[in-house]
Amino acid sequence: MPPWLDDLLWTYQNLVYALGVNGLLALSMYVVLAVGQLSLGQAAFMGLGAYSSALMTLKLKLPFLAVLPLSVVVPVAFALVIGVPTLRLAGVYLAIATIGLGEVLRAVYLNVDLFGGALGLSGIPERATAWMIYGLLGLAMLALWLIGRSGIGRAMEAMREDETAAQVMGVPVQRYKMGALLASAMLAGLAGCLSAHVSSFIGPNEYGFEPAVTILSYVLLGGIGTPLAPVVGAWVLTLLPELLRGFSDIRLVLNGVIIVFAVLFLPNGLLAVRMKRIGARTAA
């Protein structure tokens, strides 16, 4: 490899990782929005995946190939515990409850010594590779695309449009909601594990309210017509601040203005294409 290419790859290595990880997070949001659930626990699940996997690496010295699959255990277990009472909630009530759970977890990280408090966990070895990140992202997109095209996808879309009607038509609404929540926890947990193992440091403030809203914005910007749309949204929102670096102090202003214009003129997302199967309206 010529040195200039090596340098180029090294320079953008973290950005390349972040694009993949944020793509996984966008999918984790997508699976719950796809069944009409505004559940914002993704940042919390990500934090559980990141902390549990970092501790497995640092304290138990487990190999990464064991840590990566194990990193879904804690988030999924948490989702199982909170799922039943939480999934009875609808709309903003669900959104705020899941944000609240994330804030409770943040308080736990801050107050329990095992998690390092505000100092977080540092010195996490760089174990994840671009192949792993993009392999998982590709697999997740493929799986979600196949599910979306199948009968389950049709049922999910029916739930999104009108939950009561879907239930009357015999869609097992509760089971699908729980399934979506578990899938969401799994994807976010993996993303958390991968991001912890590429950036050497994790801290409690990375999994609170703001990241939760950021993850939601990936999907809102991209759209929910296909699994590709949220990933595109994540990529645009991850790249924007880096592309605007030249503007230094006002780059966040431009970032915000671009989002406003994108939503005003493309309210259904940047990629408002629908899956071929059903001709229904794509609505959030």
Partner: peptide, 12 residues
């Protein structure tokens, strides 16, 4: 999308 537009708005 209203949520999203206000999110971009407050950032700016």
């Amino acid at each position: 999308s209203s949520l999203m537009v206000t999110l971009g708005g407050v950032l700016a």
